[in-house]
């Protein structure tokens, strides 16, 4: 099999799309999106980006919903391992290339790191306009009025927007972008991030990017502000960490326990404690 599965022409096409995406932050760049040995919707966009940019000396980490060991992360890691010679790791700060679904790791990215996020719905405007052609025109004119109306109506009805994950963001004061279904908790991490963040939507055939140190702000009315999920007075039952995104787990006897969602962060804190 070819190194990194895809044929070289496909990789070249994807790299060109990536370069264009980096040049126009938040802009949706269409790409051909090859059929992959994993099903559409299971990370085919992310995996195509990863396969196109992964170098022999990369150290690869892949997480799914915060966890290195969950089923789809395992499947994709094994697939990457079987077609490349790269080393893999669970440790965020030791990796050079991270593919993730629905989370940005708790440890901030460094300048030489690339984060690839898997995306189900690349275009935030799909919430108000199903037709792709019309959405393209709306983006071109930066006509985001329908999205503002949606936000407004939610606030009138529920006093809060119903966007929970995939909260719309304004990139570089220009395009409005879907940040992939990361929780609101992770939205502030996008702003002026030191690493390169690439977004891949395989089923919808789009690539987009947030280059390092780009301004990214949630779409909010200026008098209302933005609230992320909070876990006040809650610490991880396993490592004791606070101020991170937590999983809520009900154990067999019905007790509710909280654990770090980012399992490698949890391991890190636990290791540090045992060394002390």
């Amino acid at each position: 099999m070819t190194y990194a599965f895809l044929n070289e022409d496909s990789k070249k096409e994807i790299r060109r799309a990536i370069l264009k995406a980096i040049s126009i932050p938040g802009y949706l760049v269409p790409f051909a999106s090859r059929e992959m040995p994993v099903a559409r919707g299971w990370g085919t966009g992310g995996i195509q980006i990863t396969l196109s940019i992964i170098k022999e000396d990369d150290i690869f980490k892949i997480i799914d919903q915060g966890c290195d060991g969950s089923v789809n992360a395992v499947t994709l890691r094994n697939f990457i391992k079987s077609t490349t010679i790269v080393k893999t790791t669970f440790e965020t700060d030791k990796s050079t290339l991270i593919q993730s679904r629905h989370r940005i790791p708790e440890i901030p990215l460094k300048e030489n790191q690339i984060l690839v996020l898997q995306v189900p719905y690349p275009d935030v405007l799909v919430n108000v306009e199903p037709d792709y052609g019309k959405r393209k025109v709306m983006h071109a004119y930066r006509d985001y009025s329908k999205l503002w109306v949606l936000l407004y109506e939610d606030i009138v009805k529920y006093s809060i927007s119903r966007f929970a994950s995939s909260y719309p963001v304004v990139v570089n004061d220009y395009y409005i972008m879907d940040p992939s279904p990361i929780p609101k908790f992770d939205i502030p991490k996008l702003n002026k991030n030191r690493g390169l963040i690439l977004f891949g939507a395989g089923r919808e055939k789009m690539i987009y990017a947030v280059p390092p140190y780009t301004k990214v702000e949630p779409l909010v009315f200026e008098d209302l502000g933005f609230e992320v999920e909070t876990f006040n007075n809650i610490s991880c039952h396993r490592c004791g960490a606070t101020g991170v995104f937590m999983d809520e787990i009900v154990n067999e006897i019905g007790e509710k326990k909280y654990y770090c969602n980012d399992t490698s962060y949890c391991d890190l804190i636990l290791n540090r404690k045992s060394e002390e």
Binding site: V38, C67, T75, N78, S82, E248, I249, V250, N251
Partner: peptide, 18 residues
């Protein structure tokens, strides 16, 4: 949820096969 009462039972499935 990560964990549910009775557990996640994958059973027979090719969902996770490359």
């Amino acid at each position: 949820f990560k964990n549910v009462p009775g557990g996640q039972i994958l059973g027979p499935s090719l969902d996770y096969l490359v």
